[in-house]
Design a binder for these strands. Structure first.
Length: 156
DNA sequence: GCCAACGTTGGC
DNA sequence: GCCAACGTTGGC
């Protein structure tokens, strides 16, 4: 099993939106970056776990846990002219963008803030991709050790 | 709103 | 294939 971190802006789609979604499940649409797409397409398998992270908001941080419940398939929003994620260059016969379905496993009572994560940036989380300077990927891998450690500091 | 970082685009 | 210009991300 692999671990991941899914970034989302709560203004657009936050963890509470996921909680309200049918079956607490959503298609993770709108990823328009090749590295992130490749991780979804080539790296994610059903049953993988991920952190749901809020970015570009008052208190950025990890809000809860999701699970990959459907492996990569074409992102139809790329073909939807009315979607903000429309990409006229994506050919339906050969889709450029893929997505996975994720399901909410649990929302933390207390988020693990970016500030809290950074307190360990010199230690247990020193190689964590999402903490790397200049990182802008909306999907990043999390190592099993990082996963375990982050869960251990939840609720601090 | 600012700015650093980085990806993409397009002219050559 | 290079690289400058531009757009986007995301923390602050």
């Amino acid at each position: 099993m692999n671990y991941w971190l899914f970034k989302s802006e709560p203004q657009t789609f936050g963890i509470d939106d996921l909680a309200k979604s049918p079956k607490r499940t959503t298609a993770w649409e709108g990823v328009r970056n090749y590295q992130a797409r490749n991780m979804m397409r080539d790296g994610m398998r059903a049953g993988d776990q991920g952190f749901f992270y809020h970015s570009s908001c008052d208190v950025p941080g990890i809000q809860g846990i999701v699970e990959v419940v459907r492996e990569a398939y074409p992102d139809a929003s790329a073909f939807d002219r009315k979607s903000p994620y429309h990409d006229p260059a994506s050919d339906p016969a050969n889709p450029r963008w893929m997505l996975v379905d994720v399901k909410l496993v649990r929302k933390f009572a207390r988020p693990i803030t970016l500030e809290a994560l950074k307190r360990h940036a010199g230690g247990k989380l020193k190689d964590m991709v999402v903490l790397r300077r200049g990182n802008r990927l909306s999907i990043t891998p999390v190592t099993p050790a990082e996963w375990k450690f982050i869960l251990s500091i939840a609720g601090e």
